[in-house]
Every structure is written in structure tokens, then in C-alpha cells.
Simulated scan of single mutants.
Amino acid sequence: MKNVMISLAVMGAFGLSMPAMATGLVAIPAAGFTGTAYTLCNTTGNFGSSTPTQPTTGANNTCATFPANEATSPVSGYTLIASTNRNAVIGGITVGAVSDRVWRNTAQTSCIFGARFTASNIDWDTATTGTQYFEVNDIARGGFGSASVNAGYYIQATNASPVYRIGRTFTSVQHRAYKYDTAANKLLLGTNYLDLPTANSVNTALTGEVTGIGPTVVASTTSATQDAIVNSNWIDFTIDVAYVDDDGGSNIVSAMTYVEAACDSSAVSGWVKTGAIRLRQTGQENTTLQEISIDGYAPPGSTVP
């Protein structure tokens, strides 16, 4: 941990980006990375359009951690001090739940904020023909100001979505495969889509094509939608979770996502902030752009948004 913080200090002084380390939380600088707010984590599965390869201690493990279980901190020396389940509701319909957790170190100077989404078997848009399962493509977490933070994830279930990228940004950027009709097409990137969005001007919650597409339609966008400016107050995790996905997958649970940041010894009950957790449906296939705002733990004294 000491070495990570030294690296962060050097990186901040010279404005350099640092490549993500394999196995363990990675540094997410307040200034983002070179030309982008994001860094890549699991690069298999084309952001969930195809079946990803889960991380192991030997492969596909950038940003991944391997604690003994979900209740155990991903970093030694931390104790679980809060664990709350929060409903994810859109249009009056509960589409899933978020497990919101906090671990704190012995010195009471640093905390790890965890969030995991579990999808429910429910139609959230009854006005549309068929069953519309809410798909969470990003979990954004706020309240980190300009602090140095580390972030990562843990896969606690075989049907859990890994984290594909992590960004120091408020904006969740749509990612689409070329088509989602065949295994080969699911592995190809849609026209003008970027694994690492630029960081020029977009500061909205969501960016992408607003219309969903069918499985045989070529996914195409413009560079204007593939952009997310750096916002140091937010950490964005790109995942792919749905009870039933348009691409045929079924990752019902997200990874447990982690942000390690400074905190203090105050009572964690006072750390709950309105809208500190955002669940984003980014229209990866035949879905629309949607956001669910949920209360969540944030570092003491933080501001959200």
C-alpha cells in the first residue's frame, strides 16, 4: 500500500499515467490517464457482448482481487464496518438490489467502499411489448473529490460480470459490439466505438446512441459519443449485468466493486449521501439510456454530486 501511494505522488507531480497492476486494486489518478479517464481491466468478452473469461490469480486479473469471501476486505488490515442492501427502483419498479459495504483500516484513516448489483427477474417497462430486463452496464460511485484512490473488483459468483474498465469520470460511455447475432460478430467492436473513450468535452451521466438496435444491425456511432471528461469526484466501473441479456448472456450479479480512499474515525451512519451510487443502462444492445440513483456510503465530508 505504501508503494502504491508513493507511485501516486510521483504520477501526480509529473502528470503521468500509470499502467494498471495485475492482481489487486489499481491506482485511479485524479487527473485520469493519458488522453482518457479510463483504464482497462478485464479485456475478454468484448465488454460482455460475448462470454468473458473470469479472472484467476494467474490470468485476466488486472484490477481483480481475491479475498477469502465477499465479507472480507480485498486489502489486509481492514475490517467491515457497514453493510446495507439498497433497492434499485425505476418507474416504481424494483429491478434489483445493491449491496453497499464499507471496510476501514485499523488506524481509521483509510476505507474501502464496496458495491455489488444483483438483477431481478422483472419487467421494468410494461408499456413496451415483451419483457424488458433492466441492464446495468456501469456502476458509478461519487464523493472522492481530488483524493488519491485505488479501485478494483472481486468475482464472488460464477455468473458475475467482471469489471471491464474503471474511469475517473461521472460519465458512463456506451460500448457496442459490431453485431450480436453470431459469436464472431459479438467479439468485434462496433464502428467508431472505443474501449478507452477520449476525455474532451462530454460530462453528462450517459453518452451513446439513444436508440437500441436489433441483433443483425451494425452498431455505429460517432466520436462525439465516445467521450467522457475526467471528474475526480466519481469512479465509474463498466460491467454487464442483466437477468436476461439481449446478447443471450445472463450475468445476474456484478462483481463487488471497490474504491479505496481516505476516511476518518467518525460514525459511518453519517456517511450516507443521496445519489452516491448510480446504476447506468447504456444501451449496449436493444435497450435505452437509463440511470437509477441510489443513496450510498461516501467518504466523510464529501459532496455528491
Rank of each mutant, 00 (worst) to 15 (best):
Y38V: 02
Q281Y: 07
V136R: 00
F113K: 03
T303A: 15
A115R: 05
N46K: 04
V163E: 11
T56W: 09
S302W: 07
R176N: 08
S223R: 03
N42K: 05
G275H: 02
D295S: 13
T131H: 00
M1E: 06
A9M: 09
L196R: 04
T43N: 08
A184V: 14
A97M: 07
A199M: 07
N3G: 08
V272I: 15
G275L: 06
S223P: 02
V95T: 02
N233P: 04
M1G: 12
Q284E: 10
A20S: 13
D264L: 05
L188K: 05
G212Q: 03
S146R: 02
D247P: 06
N185V: 11
F113D: 13
T282C: 08
P67S: 05
V241D: 02
C63I: 07
N3D: 14
Y164G: 09
C263V: 13
N60F: 09
D138M: 08
M21W: 09
N105S: 11
D100T: 10
S73E: 05
A298G: 07
P215N: 15
V4I: 08
G130Y: 01
I235E: 07
G92E: 08
R176E: 11
T43M: 10
G275R: 01
V26W: 06
G130R: 00
V268H: 05
V102C: 05
R116T: 04
T43Y: 07
S265N: 12
L189C: 07
T207A: 08
S148M: 09
Q284R: 10
Q290L: 14
S250T: 00
T222I: 14
G114K: 01
M21C: 12
S293C: 06
G212M: 03
T207D: 11
M1D: 09
A140D: 04
T72W: 10
N203I: 13
T131V: 07
L289A: 12
A119V: 01
I112D: 13
D123N: 02
A119S: 03
F144L: 13
S269H: 04
W234T: 10
L206Y: 05
S7C: 12
T126N: 07
A88K: 00
Q54T: 11
T65F: 08
V95N: 01
A30F: 13
D264F: 08
I166Y: 13
E135S: 10
T158I: 14
N203K: 04
T182W: 04
D295I: 11
P197V: 12
T171F: 07
T198G: 12
Y178T: 06
G296T: 09
T225S: 11
A262I: 09
G35D: 15
S201P: 03
T34W: 09
T287A: 11
N185Q: 12
I6Q: 11
N42I: 13
W271V: 03
G167K: 02
P19A: 12
T131K: 00
G96F: 00
G296S: 10
S302E: 13
G167V: 14
G32C: 05
T106C: 06
S76A: 15
N251Y: 15
Y164M: 09
A261G: 07
I229K: 08
A9I: 11
T62C: 12
G301Q: 03
S232F: 09
G249P: 00
V95K: 00
I294P: 01
A140Y: 03
C63Y: 05
T274N: 10
